[in-house]
């Protein structure tokens, strides 16, 4: 399973597809804050929609809804396979 795990940045995740947080890109600023907001490896995450002007994205992690800019979503790596 690990071998064919496909990881990609959160900004490329299609709306309403459930993915799993994999990791942060090396040198991500504020990674602690992201983690404190619930963006932890292993957590389910989905993009609910784009803002009408195309940026930022509305994402859901657990029960939390967040607005996150695409530039910030660049540094969050997600994958599609579910371990559970």
């Amino acid at each position: 399973m690990i071998a064919d795990r496909q990881t990609f940045p959160l900004r490329d995740l299609k709306p309403n597809v459930i993915a799993v947080v994999h990791d942060f890109v090396e040198g991500t600023r504020n990674r602690i804050r992201f983690a404190e907001l619930g963006l932890l490896p292993g957590r389910e995450i989905q993009v609910l929609r784009k803002a009408p002007l195309g940026d930022p994205l509305e994402i859901q992690v657990g029960e939390t809804l967040l607005s996150i800019r695409k530039r910030e979503a660049e540094s969050i790596v997600v994958s599609l396979d579910h371990e559970s």
């Binding site: 600023r29 504020n30 804050r33 992201f34 907001l37 930022p56 509305e58 029960e63 939390t64 809804l65 967040l66 607005s67 996150i68 800019r69 530039r71 910030e72």
Partner: peptide, 11 residues
């Protein structure tokens, strides 16, 4: 600046 643009959308 380490400003976060991340913002919560409350229920």
């Amino acid at each position: 600046s380490s400003t976060l643009a991340v913002m919560e959308l409350p229920t």
